[in-house]
Amino acid sequence: MADETQETTNPSNEEPAKTLVRSPLRGELSRRSFFSTLAFGWATFAAASAGLLGAAGRFMFPNVLFEPPQEFKAGFPSEFAMGVDERFKATYGCWIVREPTGFFCLSTVCTHLGCTPNWLTADEKFKCPCHGSGFIMTGINIEGPAPRPLERYRIVLAEDGQILVDKNTKYQQEKGQWELDGSYLEYA
């Protein structure tokens, strides 16, 4: 309808309206092939994206991991003095603490934003240099913004009598997990 009115108002245009449905010239996109071309384009794009995502996913699982094992032997219990042992802070990211009744292993990650606190021997507390969170020797949070105590790792005696720390298992006090076996190694 619109075309007809245009024809009448524009008599100088000699080409009739049927050119709109002419068959495609060589190399030109037809109506039918338009969708298959589109589908082909999208399929290629999807395949390329999938490949890229796959490569990115593969990147998350490196062949070699340059990090210490999650499980390690820390030596014989009798070798430990009372108090906080800082020998494993740099290598394994944990403190092994000896009390008169036994051992536990604290994570060195502050529960506020994840900085590494310092053990202040004179003040007998862990103090975080980022926002001032403080923890007593047991790992309980007493100062600053840290919302919960330091996490503990699984600590048991290996068959050879050495202390075995397993960082794959964590114990969180606020969930009542410090009561569980493995969170505390009794040793007198």
Binding site: K89, A90, T108, C115, T116, P117, N118, C128, P129, C130
Partner: peptide
Amino acid sequence: AATARTPNPS
């Protein structure tokens, strides 16, 4: 940078 030493204060 070292994992065991956070600058104090940070």
